[in-house]
């Protein structure tokens, strides 16, 4: 970890969606390191991280992956704790993963905090010939739920960064909004600290 962690903004992002939609691939792509390659279960890392700049401020994104555990419905809810953003993923070649989004959205509504930021992602857009979910259907759904929609591909890297960083900027905007409500710059610093405290159980 670089610099003084207590002065750095950190956001917790959860990547959700049915199994085999490519969640781990997306994270792998975005964080672009060899963590999984050398993955050893005892390594003690529980989420992937990437640092990015938002409005000239460095922000650390902590990205949590529930891969492999989707089937244990009741257990994945534990991951929602403290999450500020959700990247909800479906597979554009898999109709079921799209129709299941309503389940996920409902779940998020119930488990996540009220002001959690969401982005909808249709993954595997390089497989145009196998497409089962037309773009406009997904756009419409996203509009209904008031979230932004991205089509991504882990293969070509299309829009992967854009999706994650749009979500991060949303979280940042929401955080700034809260700050403004508090009104005083003096409290800005303590807010940063608070947000870190909330995150401190994440032993990344």
């Amino acid at each position: 970890m670089n610099g003084d962690p207590s002065s750095q903004l950190a956001f917790k992002i959860l990547v959700l969606g049915d199994s085999s939609v490519g969640k781990t691939c997306l994270i792998h792509r975005y964080c672009d390191d060899t963590f999984y390659e050398t993955y050893v279960s005892t390594i003690g890392i529980d989420c992937k991280q990437r640092e990015t700049m938002l409005d000239q401020i460095p922000v650390r994104l902590r990205i949590w992956d529930t891969a492999g555990q989707e089937r244990f419905r009741t257990l994945t809810t534990a991951y929602y704790r403290g999450a500020q953003g959700i990247l909800l993923v479906f597979d554009i070649t898999n109709e079921d993963s799209f129709s299941h989004l309503s389940y996920w959205l409902k779940n998020i509504e119930e488990m996540g905090s009220a002001d959690i930021c969401k982005v909808l992602v249709g993954n595997k857009c390089d497989l145009e010939k196998d497409r089962a979910v037309p773009t406009d259907r997904a756009t419409k759904l996203a509009k209904n739920f008031g979230v932004k929609f991205f089509e991504t591909s882990c293969k070509t890297n299309e829009c992967v960064t854009a999706a994650f960083e749009y979500l991060a900027s949303m979280i940042k905007a929401k955080a700034d909004e809260k700050l403004e409500k508090h009104g005083s710059l003096q409290r800005a610093h303590s807010w940063h600290k608070d947000s870190f405290k909330k995150q401190s159980w994440c032993a990344c």
């Binding site: 781990t24 792998h28 390659e37 050398t38 279960s41 492999g68 555990q69 257990l75």
Partner: peptide
């Protein structure tokens, strides 16, 4: 959990979600 599991002798019924997660990471990363 991993530590508790390592100290356990059979019979035992592990939580398979973690096994599936480990396998998923190995599969994607290699």
């Amino acid at each position: 959990y991993r530590q508790a599991l390592a100290e356990t002798s059979p019979p035992c019924i592990p939580y398979i979600g973690i096994i599936l997660q480990d396998l998923t990471f190995i599969h994607i990363g290699n």
